[in-house]
Amino acid sequence: MERREGYTDPTADKVLSSVLKKPTLSEQDAKSLSRIKHLMHLLRFAANEFGFDIEERVILRDKQTGKIWR
């Protein structure tokens, strides 16, 4: 980040890059998220077809990994 005085500020560069950096997902987590997105689409569709809405957070536990998704 360049300051008004014309010199770079390495501290600001480091802070901004860490804030703007997206967390990387493992391949397994990326696959799980894809499955969750598909599942949530199906759940919302099924609820709608039966005249319901999903109002609260759905918490899922992956049977393969044991990880809990909130």
Rank of each mutant, 00 (worst) to 15 (best):
1 M>L: 09
2 E>K: 10
3 R>N: 14
4 R>T: 07
6 G>V: 14
7 Y>M: 05
9 D>S: 07
12 A>Y: 14
12 A>V: 08
12 A>N: 07
13 D>H: 14
15 V>G: 02
16 L>D: 07
17 S>H: 09
17 S>M: 06
17 S>C: 01
17 S>E: 02
19 V>I: 11
19 V>L: 01
19 V>M: 01
20 L>F: 09
22 K>C: 04
23 P>V: 09
23 P>D: 10
23 P>L: 05
24 T>M: 00
25 L>W: 05
26 S>H: 13
26 S>N: 06
26 S>Q: 09
27 E>P: 01
30 A>F: 12
31 K>P: 00
31 K>V: 11
33 L>S: 07
33 L>T: 05
34 S>Y: 10
35 R>I: 07
35 R>P: 00
39 L>Q: 10
40 M>T: 02
41 H>P: 02
41 H>A: 02
42 L>G: 01
42 L>V: 14
42 L>E: 07
42 L>T: 14
45 F>G: 02
45 F>N: 06
47 A>E: 03
47 A>P: 05
48 N>R: 13
51 G>S: 06
52 F>A: 10
54 I>D: 00
54 I>P: 00
55 E>V: 14
56 E>T: 13
56 E>K: 15
58 V>H: 05
59 I>T: 15
59 I>E: 02
60 L>R: 03
60 L>M: 15
61 R>P: 07
62 D>C: 15
63 K>M: 10
63 K>E: 02
64 Q>M: 07
64 Q>D: 13
65 T>G: 01
65 T>R: 00
67 K>V: 13
67 K>D: 04
69 W>P: 02
69 W>H: 12
